[in-house]
């Protein structure tokens, strides 16, 4: 990014126009991605848990990461910074890949262990909640 203060007014102005154009483009992309996410979120509403259900959740997560990329790259301007700065910020975040996989695996494993070995957990986890009508009566 050149220093706009020392640049002559004409180049500075065209640069400004280009940046504003880019901002508008990124805004539209972010809005469209959000709308797609919402549509997918709605579609999950009455869907039985299965392969398609998990596939749609995966798509939502990928769209989330794309949105994050656009915000960091364009709004936070990281794409136009020096390579050294980009790597300094982005590389430490890669630890999240390990972090997420290991901890979700751990959670899942804990669930299996509880289900297999704890009779108490089995009983509690399958207890039905009082229906909406009885709750309503209790409230008033």
């Amino acid at each position: 990014m050149s220093n706009t203060l020392s640049a002559d007014p004409i180049t500075s102005k065209t640069l400004h126009k280009a940046v504003v154009k880019e901002v508008i483009r990124v805004t539209i992309i972010l809005s469209v991605l959000t709308i797609i996410e919402l549509i997918l979120g709605f579609s999950l509403m009455d869907m039985p848990v299965g392969l398609l259900h998990y596939f749609i959740k995966g798509v939502i997560v990928i769209l989330m990461l794309v949105k994050a990329f656009y915000i960091v790259a364009y709004f936070m301007h990281l794409k136009h910074e020096k390579d050294g700065l980009i790597f300094t910020i982005v590389v430490p975040l890669f630890i999240f890949i390990w972090f997420i996989f290991v901890f979700l695996y751990e959670g899942n494993s804990f669930q299996n262990l509880k289900s297999r070995y704890s009779a108490n957990y089995q009983e509690r986890a399958t207890m039905m909640a009082p229906s909406a009508e009885t709750q309503h009566v209790e409230k008033h």
Binding site: G41, F42, L44, M45, F96, F99, I100, F103, L104, Y105, E106, G107, N108, F110, Q111, K114, S115, A125
Partner: peptide, 22 residues
């Protein structure tokens, strides 16, 4: 924030079921 959200995810994976956000 990452640690917060991952602990949330871990708890969710350790639960048999979860409330429906919709």
């Amino acid at each position: 924030f990452g640690a917060f959200l991952i602990s949330y995810g871990t708890t969710r994976f350790a639960s048999r079921n979860w409330p429906n956000p919709n």
